[in-house]
């Protein structure tokens, strides 16, 4: 865990290579920010201006009109997405940590085979299983709303969460567990009292990952949450794009609103994401 302790920063001396490094960083930053610039600028224009100007022109008369229209449509869905993402993220993280713990620390026969079979689930193309999925959900009465969506996201989140936690727990020394076992702790007891408390960095990675992917997911959202009062935000965002007439400024304003929580998560927790990865979460 020593790597988690930040090495003291050496004061940056001015060297030519520093200038080059900054130049490259700025060039990269421009590449990453260019689309963001387009989104923001467009969202502040009026419909007339959007249909007459190029992408890079600043709005002549900036207006928040588009945000207003987007907000009206999206506000209820925003709440739905929260209701969906929070339990789905927590549940899949918990299941993942349990699996990761068992599969890394209790190497029973065929543990590796089970892990491989679980992991493969991460890679299936979701469109290909839509119809059986739908029939199954209808059969168990979970089609149509958020509970069904939660189930689906938890299930398809199991592989990645298991992977991350298994790799994370692999770095925990076996001796720690052996000692606890000597003291008579149970399998579950070790998990609760030893593994969970040290797995915060793993949870951060998993939760950021799951939060973002569930928040941004569209295919399941549109097919499973048929009840219009239960729609997540991505569906509302798509609904802003009319089938015949596209009001780009409203779409862009909507995109900003929809992306706000995930952007916030990355800005606030981005560094912990890297630290979590650093702590072994995604190493091969």
């Amino acid at each position: 865990m020593s790597v988690l302790v930040a090495t003291p920063r050496t004061a940056t001396r001015w060297r030519p290579s520093t200038a080059v490094a900054y130049a490259l960083l700025i060039a990269l930053a421009v590449f990453y920010l260019l689309p963001m610039f387009a989104i923001v600028v467009t969202s502040l224009k009026s419909f007339n201006e959007v249909s007459r100007s190029t992408l890079w022109e600043l709005p002549k008369a900036p207006t928040f009109e588009a945000f207003g229209s987007a907000f009206d449509v999206m506000a209820p869905s925003f709440f739905n997405s929260v209701l969906l993402v929070v339990p789905a993220t927590i549940l899949s993280a918990l299941l993942g940590s349990l699996n990761g713990y068992v599969l890394s620390k209790w190497k029973f026969r065929s543990a590796n085979a089970i892990f491989a079979l679980l992991l493969f689930g991460m890679f299936i193309p979701y469109q290909s299983i839509l119809i059986p999925l739908f029939q199954f959900l209808s059969a168990i009465g979970l089609y149509g709303g958020i509970p069904g969506l939660i189930l689906v996201h938890v299930v398809y989140g199991i592989p990645i969460c298991t992977l991350i936690f298994r790799n994370y727990f692999a770095t925990v020394p076996r001796e720690l567990l052996e000692a606890a076992r000597m003291d008579g702790a149970s399998v579950l007891g070790i998990f609760r009292h030893i593994m969970l408390p040290i797995s915060v960095p793993g949870f951060v990675v998993v939760m950021i990952w799951q939060f973002t992917s569930i928040w941004n997911e569209f295919l399941f959202a549109v097919t499973i949450a048929q009840d219009p009062t239960q729609r997540p935000i991505t569906v509302a965002l798509q609904n802003l794009a009319g089938s015949l007439l596209s009001q780009y400024q409203v779409q862009m304003a909507g995109a900003l609103l929809a992306a706000a929580p995930t952007l916030l998560v990355y800005i606030l927790l981005g560094r912990y994401f890297v630290r979590g990865l650093l702590a072994g979460s995604l190493k091969g």
């Binding site: 839509l130 119809i131 739908f134 149509g144 048929q226 569906v235 089938s243």
Partner: peptide, 26 residues
């Protein structure tokens, strides 16, 4: 009145959703 709309792809998404629903008997 429940206004069930599905946008995108000039009706392509809607058709996909409708098909899954009809196939599923809903």
């Amino acid at each position: 009145i429940v206004n069930a709309t599905v946008a995108g792809g000039a009706g392509t998404n809607a058709k996909a959703v409708l098909k899954t629903r009809m196939e599923g008997g809903k």
